[in-house]
Design a protein around this nucleic acid. Structure first.
Length: 155
DNA sequence: GCCAACGTTGGC
DNA sequence: GCCAACGTTGGC
């Protein structure tokens, strides 16, 4: 069982969008970064838990929890010419990009802001809080997970 | 295989 | 909207 953090811009897709999906489940498409893809493809397992992180917004931070609801499978949005996530180098026969399904679990009553994460000595090694990290999918350690749950008042 | 140019991410 | 960080591309 692994823990993750996955970023999304709330204007595009927020935790409230996920909660309102049928079965509270949606595919996490549009990942076009090899490191992030490799995490999904090689390490993510159905049943893993992930923090839902809101980026590029008024208060960036962790807003809740979701569950990984499938293994990785080809991201079909790469096959649609003219669409935002189209990539001519990715084909159904030889897909370059992958996605997983995620299921809403919980929205925190209180967001854990990036600013508050940065203040915590215990989390100083977290990749998220390190300078200039742009990776949209990151592993989280079990101790980081527990600590952040406590910060959210959920532990 | 180097590296400059370019594009994107995302905090502020 | 700015800009630093950094991944990708492509010429050589």
């Amino acid at each position: 069982m692994n823990y993750w953090l996955m970023k999304s811009e709330p204007d595009v897709f927020s935790i409230d969008h996920l909660r309102k999906m049928p079965r509270k489940t949606e595919h996490w498409d549009g990942i076009r970064n090899y490191q992030a893809r490799n995490f999904m493809r090689d390490a993510m397992k159905k049943g893993d838990l992930a923090f839902f992180y809101h980026s590029n917004c008024e208060e960036p931070g962790i807003v809740g929890i979701m569950e990984i609801a499938s293994a990785a499978y080809p991201d079909h949005t790469a096959f649609e010419p003219g669409q935002k996530y189209f990539d001519e180098k990715s084909t159904p026969e030889n897909p370059r990009w992958m996605m997983v399904d995620v299921k809403f679990k919980k929205k925190f009553k209180k967001n854990v802001s990036l600013a508050s994460l940065k203040e915590e000595k215990k989390l100083s090694k977290m990749r998220l809080v390190q300078r200039g990290n742009r990776l949209s999918i990151l592993p989280v350690t079990a101790s980081e997970w527990k600590f952040i749950l406590k910060m959210a008042g959920e532990a």
